[in-house]
Design a protein around this nucleic acid. Structure first.
Length: 415
RNA sequence: GUGGCCAUAGUUCAGUUGGUUAGAACGCCAGGUUGUGGCCCUGGAGGUCGUGGGUUCAAAUCCCACUGGUCACCCCA
Protein backbone atom coordinates (compact mmCIF):
# COMPACT_ATOMS: atom_id res chain seq x y z
CA UNK A 1 0.00 0.00 0.00
CA UNK A 2 1.21 3.42 -0.84
CA UNK A 3 0.16 6.61 0.90
CA UNK A 4 0.49 10.00 -0.62
CA UNK A 5 -0.67 13.54 -0.01
CA UNK A 6 -4.26 14.00 -1.05
CA UNK A 7 -5.15 15.95 -4.16
CA UNK A 8 -4.40 19.61 -3.88
CA UNK A 9 -2.19 19.33 -0.82
CA UNK A 10 1.57 19.55 -0.68
CA UNK A 11 4.43 18.75 1.63
CA UNK A 12 6.59 21.73 2.38
CA UNK A 13 10.01 20.10 2.36
CA UNK A 14 13.14 21.06 4.30
CA UNK A 15 14.69 22.60 1.18
CA UNK A 16 11.86 25.09 0.85
CA UNK A 17 11.13 25.77 4.49
CA UNK A 18 13.57 28.66 4.81
CA UNK A 19 11.57 30.61 2.22
CA UNK A 20 8.41 30.08 4.23
CA UNK A 21 10.04 31.09 7.46
CA UNK A 22 11.44 34.20 5.84
CA UNK A 23 8.00 35.25 4.60
CA UNK A 24 6.45 34.45 7.96
CA UNK A 25 9.02 36.49 9.83
CA UNK A 26 8.52 39.51 7.59
CA UNK A 27 4.75 39.17 7.98
CA UNK A 28 5.04 39.05 11.76
CA UNK A 29 7.44 41.98 11.87
CA UNK A 30 5.31 44.24 9.70
CA UNK A 31 2.12 43.21 11.50
CA UNK A 32 3.85 44.17 14.72
CA UNK A 33 5.00 47.49 13.30
CA UNK A 34 1.40 48.23 12.37
CA UNK A 35 0.42 47.19 15.90
CA UNK A 36 -1.64 44.13 15.04
CA UNK A 37 -1.69 41.26 17.51
CA UNK A 38 -1.82 37.63 16.46
CA UNK A 39 -4.92 35.51 16.97
CA UNK A 40 -5.09 31.76 16.41
CA UNK A 41 -8.45 30.16 15.90
CA UNK A 42 -9.25 26.49 15.26
CA UNK A 43 -8.91 25.13 11.73
CA UNK A 44 -12.57 24.09 11.74
CA UNK A 45 -15.79 25.71 12.87
CA UNK A 46 -19.52 25.16 12.74
CA UNK A 47 -20.59 25.15 9.13
CA UNK A 48 -23.18 27.84 9.80
CA UNK A 49 -20.52 30.39 10.68
CA UNK A 50 -19.13 30.35 7.15
CA UNK A 51 -22.47 29.99 5.44
CA UNK A 52 -23.75 33.03 7.31
CA UNK A 53 -20.72 35.26 6.88
CA UNK A 54 -19.39 34.43 3.44
CA UNK A 55 -22.86 34.04 1.95
CA UNK A 56 -24.86 30.97 0.98
CA UNK A 57 -24.79 31.88 -2.67
CA UNK A 58 -21.07 32.42 -3.02
CA UNK A 59 -18.94 29.86 -4.81
CA UNK A 60 -16.98 29.25 -1.64
CA UNK A 61 -20.00 28.19 0.37
CA UNK A 62 -22.04 26.58 -2.36
CA UNK A 63 -19.37 24.33 -3.81
CA UNK A 64 -15.93 24.69 -2.30
CA UNK A 65 -16.16 23.95 1.41
CA UNK A 66 -14.79 20.90 3.15
CA UNK A 67 -17.87 20.11 5.17
CA UNK A 68 -18.43 16.94 7.17
CA UNK A 69 -20.49 15.57 10.01
CA UNK A 70 -18.65 14.70 13.19
CA UNK A 71 -19.59 11.74 15.38
CA UNK A 72 -22.38 13.65 17.02
CA UNK A 73 -23.81 14.56 13.63
CA UNK A 74 -22.83 18.19 13.89
CA UNK A 75 -21.94 19.83 10.59
CA UNK A 76 -18.38 21.16 10.70
CA UNK A 77 -16.30 22.87 8.06
CA UNK A 78 -12.58 23.33 7.52
CA UNK A 79 -12.14 27.09 7.36
CA UNK A 80 -12.11 28.38 3.79
CA UNK A 81 -10.91 31.82 4.89
CA UNK A 82 -9.90 33.61 8.05
CA UNK A 83 -12.25 36.50 8.63
CA UNK A 84 -15.30 34.59 9.81
CA UNK A 85 -13.39 32.76 12.52
CA UNK A 86 -11.56 35.88 13.65
CA UNK A 87 -14.85 37.71 14.05
CA UNK A 88 -16.43 34.75 15.82
CA UNK A 89 -13.54 34.83 18.29
CA UNK A 90 -13.87 38.59 18.66
CA UNK A 91 -17.54 38.25 19.51
CA UNK A 92 -17.28 35.11 21.65
CA UNK A 93 -14.46 36.52 23.78
CA UNK A 94 -15.92 40.02 24.05
CA UNK A 95 -12.75 41.57 22.71
CA UNK A 96 -14.74 44.62 21.77
CA UNK A 97 -15.50 45.25 25.45
CA UNK A 98 -11.82 45.44 26.33
CA UNK A 99 -11.04 48.24 23.95
CA UNK A 100 -12.99 50.17 21.36
CA UNK A 101 -10.68 49.17 18.54
CA UNK A 102 -9.27 45.68 18.04
CA UNK A 103 -6.52 44.96 15.55
CA UNK A 104 -5.65 41.31 15.02
CA UNK A 105 -3.77 39.25 12.44
CA UNK A 106 -3.60 35.57 11.62
CA UNK A 107 -1.44 33.26 9.60
CA UNK A 108 -2.27 29.67 8.80
CA UNK A 109 -3.82 27.07 6.52
CA UNK A 110 -7.19 27.44 4.77
CA UNK A 111 -9.14 24.79 2.86
CA UNK A 112 -11.22 24.87 -0.29
CA UNK A 113 -12.22 21.91 -2.39
CA UNK A 114 -11.51 23.24 -5.86
CA UNK A 115 -9.73 21.72 -8.82
CA UNK A 116 -6.04 22.44 -8.17
CA UNK A 117 -4.04 24.50 -10.63
CA UNK A 118 -1.10 26.90 -10.63
CA UNK A 119 -1.44 29.03 -7.50
CA UNK A 120 -4.46 27.16 -6.24
CA UNK A 121 -4.33 24.36 -3.72
CA UNK A 122 -6.95 22.70 -1.56
CA UNK A 123 -4.96 23.40 1.55
CA UNK A 124 -3.25 26.73 1.14
CA UNK A 125 -1.91 29.34 3.50
CA UNK A 126 -2.95 32.87 4.17
CA UNK A 127 -2.01 35.72 6.40
CA UNK A 128 -4.48 38.45 7.02
CA UNK A 129 -5.59 41.17 9.39
CA UNK A 130 -8.84 42.53 10.77
CA UNK A 131 -9.50 45.87 12.43
CA UNK A 132 -12.77 45.94 14.33
CA UNK A 133 -14.50 48.92 15.86
CA UNK A 134 -13.82 51.88 13.61
CA UNK A 135 -15.28 53.07 10.36
CA UNK A 136 -12.48 55.51 9.62
CA UNK A 137 -11.22 55.44 6.04
CA UNK A 138 -7.74 55.53 7.57
CA UNK A 139 -8.19 51.88 8.42
CA UNK A 140 -9.34 51.02 4.91
CA UNK A 141 -6.10 52.47 3.66
CA UNK A 142 -4.09 50.78 6.41
CA UNK A 143 -5.45 47.41 5.28
CA UNK A 144 -3.97 47.95 1.86
CA UNK A 145 -0.77 49.66 2.97
CA UNK A 146 -0.08 46.73 5.30
CA UNK A 147 0.22 43.96 2.73
CA UNK A 148 1.97 46.37 0.37
CA UNK A 149 4.58 47.06 3.03
CA UNK A 150 5.08 43.32 3.49
CA UNK A 151 5.58 42.93 -0.25
CA UNK A 152 7.95 45.84 -0.30
CA UNK A 153 10.06 44.43 2.50
CA UNK A 154 10.20 41.12 0.66
CA UNK A 155 11.45 42.89 -2.43
CA UNK A 156 8.31 42.72 -4.55
CA UNK A 157 7.38 45.85 -6.43
CA UNK A 158 5.44 44.61 -9.42
CA UNK A 159 1.85 44.45 -8.37
CA UNK A 160 -1.28 46.37 -9.07
CA UNK A 161 -3.78 47.58 -6.53
CA UNK A 162 -7.39 47.89 -7.59
CA UNK A 163 -10.02 49.44 -5.38
CA UNK A 164 -13.72 49.96 -5.59
CA UNK A 165 -16.64 50.84 -3.39
CA UNK A 166 -19.53 48.42 -3.29
CA UNK A 167 -21.74 50.77 -1.28
CA UNK A 168 -23.76 50.04 1.80
CA UNK A 169 -27.24 48.87 2.76
CA UNK A 170 -28.56 52.35 2.00
CA UNK A 171 -27.32 52.83 -1.54
CA UNK A 172 -26.75 49.32 -2.81
CA UNK A 173 -30.37 48.14 -3.12
CA UNK A 174 -31.32 50.98 -5.45
CA UNK A 175 -28.22 50.49 -7.55
CA UNK A 176 -28.82 46.75 -7.61
CA UNK A 177 -32.26 47.33 -9.12
CA UNK A 178 -30.89 49.76 -11.66
CA UNK A 179 -28.21 47.29 -12.68
CA UNK A 180 -30.71 44.44 -12.82
CA UNK A 181 -32.93 46.26 -15.27
CA UNK A 182 -29.91 46.94 -17.45
CA UNK A 183 -28.76 43.34 -17.22
CA UNK A 184 -32.17 42.00 -18.12
CA UNK A 185 -31.98 43.85 -21.42
CA UNK A 186 -29.11 41.59 -22.48
CA UNK A 187 -30.03 38.61 -20.36
CA UNK A 188 -30.19 36.03 -23.11
CA UNK A 189 -26.70 36.90 -24.33
CA UNK A 190 -25.05 36.55 -20.92
CA UNK A 191 -23.08 33.47 -19.96
CA UNK A 192 -25.05 30.87 -17.99
CA UNK A 193 -23.10 31.68 -14.83
CA UNK A 194 -23.90 35.33 -15.13
CA UNK A 195 -27.57 34.68 -15.90
CA UNK A 196 -27.88 32.92 -12.57
CA UNK A 197 -26.34 35.92 -10.82
CA UNK A 198 -28.60 38.55 -12.32
CA UNK A 199 -31.32 37.73 -9.83
CA UNK A 200 -29.34 37.20 -6.65
CA UNK A 201 -26.04 39.01 -6.99
CA UNK A 202 -26.03 41.27 -10.05
CA UNK A 203 -22.82 43.07 -9.03
CA UNK A 204 -20.90 39.84 -9.59
CA UNK A 205 -21.93 39.90 -13.24
CA UNK A 206 -19.77 42.97 -13.74
CA UNK A 207 -16.82 41.07 -12.27
CA UNK A 208 -17.25 38.20 -14.75
CA UNK A 209 -14.09 37.37 -16.66
CA UNK A 210 -16.08 36.13 -19.61
CA UNK A 211 -15.22 38.40 -22.55
CA UNK A 212 -18.72 38.51 -23.96
CA UNK A 213 -20.12 39.38 -20.55
CA UNK A 214 -17.63 42.18 -20.20
CA UNK A 215 -18.52 43.61 -23.58
CA UNK A 216 -22.22 43.47 -22.85
CA UNK A 217 -21.77 45.20 -19.52
CA UNK A 218 -19.21 47.70 -20.72
CA UNK A 219 -21.42 50.73 -20.47
CA UNK A 220 -23.52 49.69 -17.56
CA UNK A 221 -23.77 51.86 -14.45
CA UNK A 222 -21.05 51.32 -11.85
CA UNK A 223 -21.67 51.16 -8.13
CA UNK A 224 -19.12 53.75 -7.15
CA UNK A 225 -20.93 56.28 -9.28
CA UNK A 226 -24.21 55.62 -7.48
CA UNK A 227 -23.11 55.77 -3.87
CA UNK A 228 -25.03 57.52 -1.13
CA UNK A 229 -23.48 60.62 0.36
CA UNK A 230 -21.80 58.79 3.21
CA UNK A 231 -20.24 56.18 0.94
CA UNK A 232 -19.19 58.80 -1.56
CA UNK A 233 -17.40 60.76 1.14
CA UNK A 234 -15.79 57.61 2.50
CA UNK A 235 -14.53 56.55 -0.91
CA UNK A 236 -13.21 60.04 -1.59
CA UNK A 237 -11.37 60.03 1.74
CA UNK A 238 -9.80 56.67 1.03
CA UNK A 239 -8.56 57.97 -2.29
CA UNK A 240 -7.15 61.18 -0.92
CA UNK A 241 -5.35 59.37 1.89
CA UNK A 242 -3.80 57.09 -0.70
CA UNK A 243 -2.63 60.09 -2.64
CA UNK A 244 -1.06 61.50 0.51
CA UNK A 245 0.76 58.21 1.04
CA UNK A 246 1.82 58.29 -2.60
CA UNK A 247 0.61 54.75 -3.09
CA UNK A 248 -0.60 54.21 -6.61
CA UNK A 249 -3.84 52.40 -7.22
CA UNK A 250 -6.50 52.06 -9.84
CA UNK A 251 -10.24 52.42 -9.37
CA UNK A 252 -11.96 49.39 -10.86
CA UNK A 253 -15.70 49.86 -10.84
CA UNK A 254 -16.27 46.21 -11.70
CA UNK A 255 -14.38 44.80 -8.76
CA UNK A 256 -16.76 42.99 -6.45
CA UNK A 257 -15.04 39.92 -5.01
CA UNK A 258 -16.58 36.61 -4.18
CA UNK A 259 -17.55 37.18 -0.60
CA UNK A 260 -20.88 38.76 0.13
CA UNK A 261 -20.02 40.64 3.27
CA UNK A 262 -18.19 43.66 1.86
CA UNK A 263 -19.53 47.18 2.25
CA UNK A 264 -17.92 50.35 0.96
CA UNK A 265 -14.28 49.57 0.18
CA UNK A 266 -13.28 46.41 -1.67
CA UNK A 267 -9.79 45.87 -3.03
CA UNK A 268 -7.52 43.38 -4.69
CA UNK A 269 -3.79 43.20 -5.23
CA UNK A 270 -2.70 41.24 -8.28
CA UNK A 271 0.66 40.33 -9.73
CA UNK A 272 1.57 39.75 -13.35
CA UNK A 273 4.25 37.32 -12.19
CA UNK A 274 1.49 34.81 -11.49
CA UNK A 275 -0.50 32.68 -13.89
CA UNK A 276 -4.21 32.66 -14.25
CA UNK A 277 -4.71 32.82 -10.50
CA UNK A 278 -3.15 36.22 -10.13
CA UNK A 279 -4.65 37.62 -6.92
CA UNK A 280 -2.02 38.09 -4.25
CA UNK A 281 -4.33 39.62 -1.69
CA UNK A 282 -7.82 40.94 -1.32
CA UNK A 283 -10.06 42.45 1.25
CA UNK A 284 -12.37 45.24 2.15
CA UNK A 285 -14.68 46.76 4.68
CA UNK A 286 -17.51 44.78 6.26
CA UNK A 287 -19.53 47.07 8.51
CA UNK A 288 -22.49 44.72 8.90
CA UNK A 289 -20.73 41.44 9.44
CA UNK A 290 -20.12 41.50 13.20
CA UNK A 291 -23.78 42.16 13.82
CA UNK A 292 -24.75 39.53 11.27
CA UNK A 293 -22.74 37.01 13.30
CA UNK A 294 -24.53 37.93 16.50
CA UNK A 295 -22.28 40.64 17.89
CA UNK A 296 -22.97 44.27 18.51
CA UNK A 297 -23.09 46.48 15.47
CA UNK A 298 -19.39 47.02 14.83
CA UNK A 299 -17.65 48.29 11.74
CA UNK A 300 -14.63 46.40 10.44
CA UNK A 301 -12.08 46.09 7.66
CA UNK A 302 -9.70 43.32 6.73
CA UNK A 303 -7.56 41.67 4.14
CA UNK A 304 -6.22 38.21 3.37
CA UNK A 305 -3.16 37.30 1.34
CA UNK A 306 -1.98 34.01 -0.10
CA UNK A 307 1.43 32.73 0.95
CA UNK A 308 1.93 30.18 -1.84
CA UNK A 309 1.28 32.85 -4.45
CA UNK A 310 3.62 35.21 -2.68
CA UNK A 311 6.30 32.51 -2.75
CA UNK A 312 5.63 32.00 -6.47
CA UNK A 313 6.23 35.67 -7.13
CA UNK A 314 9.41 35.65 -5.06
CA UNK A 315 10.69 32.67 -6.97
CA UNK A 316 9.87 34.38 -10.28
CA UNK A 317 11.89 37.35 -9.15
CA UNK A 318 14.77 35.11 -8.12
CA UNK A 319 14.34 36.07 -4.49
CA UNK A 320 13.55 32.66 -3.11
CA UNK A 321 17.04 31.49 -2.31
CA UNK A 322 16.63 31.49 1.46
CA UNK A 323 18.64 28.79 3.21
CA UNK A 324 18.88 27.44 6.69
CA UNK A 325 22.18 28.39 8.31
CA UNK A 326 24.65 25.51 7.95
CA UNK A 327 26.52 23.90 10.89
CA UNK A 328 29.32 25.97 12.35
CA UNK A 329 31.35 22.94 13.37
CA UNK A 330 31.36 19.46 11.95
CA UNK A 331 33.22 16.89 14.01
CA UNK A 332 34.93 14.08 12.18
CA UNK A 333 35.38 11.09 14.46
CA UNK A 334 37.88 8.33 13.75
CA UNK A 335 36.91 5.55 16.12
CA UNK A 336 34.31 4.63 18.70
CA UNK A 337 35.83 6.67 21.61
CA UNK A 338 36.16 9.66 19.30
CA UNK A 339 32.56 9.39 18.14
CA UNK A 340 31.37 9.41 21.71
CA UNK A 341 33.66 12.26 22.67
CA UNK A 342 32.63 14.40 19.68
CA UNK A 343 28.99 13.72 20.40
CA UNK A 344 29.38 14.94 23.98
CA UNK A 345 31.31 17.97 22.80
CA UNK A 346 28.74 18.78 20.13
CA UNK A 347 25.98 18.57 22.72
CA UNK A 348 27.88 21.02 24.89
CA UNK A 349 28.30 23.46 22.00
CA UNK A 350 24.65 23.09 21.03
CA UNK A 351 23.67 24.06 24.53
CA UNK A 352 25.61 27.26 23.97
CA UNK A 353 23.69 27.92 20.79
CA UNK A 354 26.33 26.81 18.35
CA UNK A 355 25.15 24.56 15.55
CA UNK A 356 27.37 21.49 15.69
CA UNK A 357 27.16 18.17 13.90
CA UNK A 358 28.88 14.80 14.21
CA UNK A 359 29.06 11.58 12.24
CA UNK A 360 26.54 8.93 13.22
CA UNK A 361 27.35 6.36 10.56
CA UNK A 362 30.93 5.44 11.44
CA UNK A 363 32.05 6.36 7.96
CA UNK A 364 35.54 6.95 6.60
CA UNK A 365 37.31 10.26 7.11
CA UNK A 366 36.87 11.03 3.45
CA UNK A 367 33.15 10.41 3.66
CA UNK A 368 32.81 12.50 6.76
CA UNK A 369 34.72 15.34 5.11
CA UNK A 370 32.46 15.09 2.10
CA UNK A 371 29.46 15.26 4.37
CA UNK A 372 30.85 18.33 6.14
CA UNK A 373 31.42 19.91 2.75
CA UNK A 374 27.95 19.03 1.49
CA UNK A 375 26.43 20.61 4.54
CA UNK A 376 28.63 23.65 4.05
CA UNK A 377 29.95 23.46 7.58
CA UNK A 378 32.16 26.44 8.41
CA UNK A 379 34.72 24.44 10.36
CA UNK A 380 35.79 20.84 10.77
CA UNK A 381 37.64 19.29 13.69
CA UNK A 382 39.07 15.82 13.15
CA UNK A 383 39.23 13.84 16.37
CA UNK A 384 41.09 10.55 16.85
CA UNK A 385 43.13 8.70 19.43
CA UNK A 386 45.96 11.20 19.16
CA UNK A 387 43.79 14.28 19.72
CA UNK A 388 42.05 12.73 22.69
CA UNK A 389 45.42 11.90 24.26
CA UNK A 390 46.97 15.32 23.75
CA UNK A 391 43.75 17.34 23.93
CA UNK A 392 45.00 19.24 20.91
CA UNK A 393 43.44 19.31 17.46
CA UNK A 394 43.25 21.25 14.23
CA UNK A 395 40.33 23.48 13.43
CA UNK A 396 39.92 23.53 9.68
CA UNK A 397 38.31 26.45 7.92
CA UNK A 398 36.35 24.80 5.10
CA UNK A 399 36.25 27.88 2.98
CA UNK A 400 39.97 28.70 2.98
CA UNK A 401 41.27 25.25 3.82
CA UNK A 402 43.42 26.74 6.55
CA UNK A 403 44.01 24.81 9.74
CA UNK A 404 44.85 26.23 13.12
CA UNK A 405 45.80 24.46 16.33
CA UNK A 406 43.28 24.54 19.12
CA UNK A 407 42.73 22.99 22.52
CA UNK A 408 39.91 20.45 22.68
CA UNK A 409 39.08 21.54 26.19
CA UNK A 410 38.27 25.02 25.08
CA UNK A 411 36.98 25.22 21.53
CA UNK A 412 36.74 28.78 20.37
CA UNK A 413 35.26 29.65 17.03
CA UNK A 414 37.14 32.43 15.23
CA UNK A 415 34.90 35.33 14.34
C1' G B 1 -17.53 20.13 -11.62
C1' U B 2 -15.73 20.50 -17.32
C1' G B 3 -11.62 20.34 -20.83
C1' G B 4 -6.27 20.08 -22.93
C1' C B 5 -1.47 17.96 -22.03
C1' C B 6 1.52 14.48 -19.37
C1' A B 7 3.07 9.78 -16.48
C1' U B 8 10.43 5.66 -17.84
C1' A B 9 16.11 5.39 -11.80
C1' G B 10 16.15 9.92 -5.93
C1' U B 11 15.77 14.29 -9.83
C1' U B 12 15.56 16.16 -15.06
C1' C B 13 14.92 13.54 -19.29
C1' A B 14 16.45 9.99 -23.85
C1' G B 15 14.36 5.47 -25.68
C1' U B 16 14.82 5.21 -33.45
C1' U B 17 9.07 2.13 -37.97
C1' G B 18 6.47 -2.46 -31.50
C1' G B 19 12.03 -6.76 -31.62
C1' U B 20 17.38 -9.43 -27.16
C1' U B 21 20.09 -7.97 -20.49
C1' A B 22 15.58 -0.06 -20.67
C1' G B 23 20.00 4.40 -21.16
C1' A B 24 22.25 9.52 -20.05
C1' A B 25 23.15 13.60 -16.94
C1' C B 26 22.92 15.19 -12.06
C1' G B 27 22.36 13.11 -7.20
C1' C B 28 23.65 8.90 -3.88
C1' C B 29 27.47 5.07 -2.13
C1' A B 30 32.63 3.36 -2.33
C1' G B 31 37.62 3.76 -3.93
C1' G B 32 41.95 6.80 -6.24
C1' U B 33 47.80 3.34 -0.51
C1' U B 34 49.14 5.23 6.09
C1' G B 35 43.75 10.12 9.43
C1' U B 36 41.22 15.60 5.38
C1' G B 37 36.15 18.05 1.66
C1' G B 38 35.05 21.14 -3.03
C1' C B 39 37.67 19.80 -9.11
C1' C B 40 39.07 15.30 -11.63
C1' C B 41 39.28 9.82 -12.45
C1' U B 42 37.39 4.69 -11.54
C1' G B 43 33.73 1.48 -9.87
C1' G B 44 28.86 0.49 -7.63
C1' A B 45 23.81 0.60 -5.99
C1' G B 46 19.14 2.10 -7.78
C1' G B 47 13.61 1.16 -12.44
C1' U B 48 7.01 -4.24 -11.03
C1' C B 49 8.62 1.68 -17.61
C1' G B 50 1.70 5.07 -12.80
C1' U B 51 -2.21 0.76 -12.17
C1' G B 52 -5.37 -2.82 -14.58
C1' G B 53 -7.07 -4.86 -18.97
C1' G B 54 -6.64 -5.63 -24.41
C1' U B 55 -4.09 -6.25 -29.50
C1' U B 56 0.45 -9.11 -30.96
C1' C B 57 4.91 -14.48 -31.84
C1' A B 58 6.75 -9.99 -29.17
C1' A B 59 4.49 -3.78 -25.79
C1' A B 60 8.10 1.43 -22.20
C1' U B 61 6.35 1.85 -27.43
C1' C B 62 -0.41 0.56 -30.18
C1' C B 63 -5.83 0.62 -27.97
C1' C B 64 -9.26 1.14 -23.62
C1' A B 65 -10.30 2.15 -18.55
C1' C B 66 -8.72 3.90 -13.96
C1' U B 67 -5.41 6.69 -10.81
C1' G B 68 -2.16 10.64 -10.21
C1' G B 69 0.19 15.16 -11.90
C1' U B 70 -0.12 19.66 -14.59
C1' C B 71 -2.36 23.79 -17.08
C1' A B 72 -6.85 26.22 -18.33
C1' C B 73 -12.29 27.24 -17.58
C1' C B 74 -15.11 28.60 -13.21
C1' C B 75 -13.77 31.07 -8.89
C1' C B 76 -10.32 33.07 -5.78
C1' A B 77 -5.48 33.65 -1.76
Amino acid sequence: MKFRTIKGTKDILPDEIAGWQHVESVVRRVMHDFNYREIRTPAFEQTGLFARSIGELTDIVSKEMYTFLDRSEESLTLRPEGTAAALRAYIQNNLGEQSPLTKVYYIGPMFRQERPQAGRLRQFHQFGAEALGASSPLLDVEMMALPLEIYKQLGIDHYSLKINSVGCEKCRPAYKKLLQTELRKVFSQLSPDSQVRVGQNPLRVLDSKNEKDRELTNNMPLMYKHLCEECTLHFASVRSIFDALTISYEVDGRLVRGLDYYTKTAFEITSTALGSQDALAGGGRYDLLVEELGGKSTPGVGFAAGIERLLMVLSQLGKSDQKQAPPVIYFVGLDEPAHIWTFLKATELRQKGICAEVDYLGRSVKSQMREANRQQAHYVIVVGEQELKTKAAKLKNMLSGEEISISLDDIKIPT
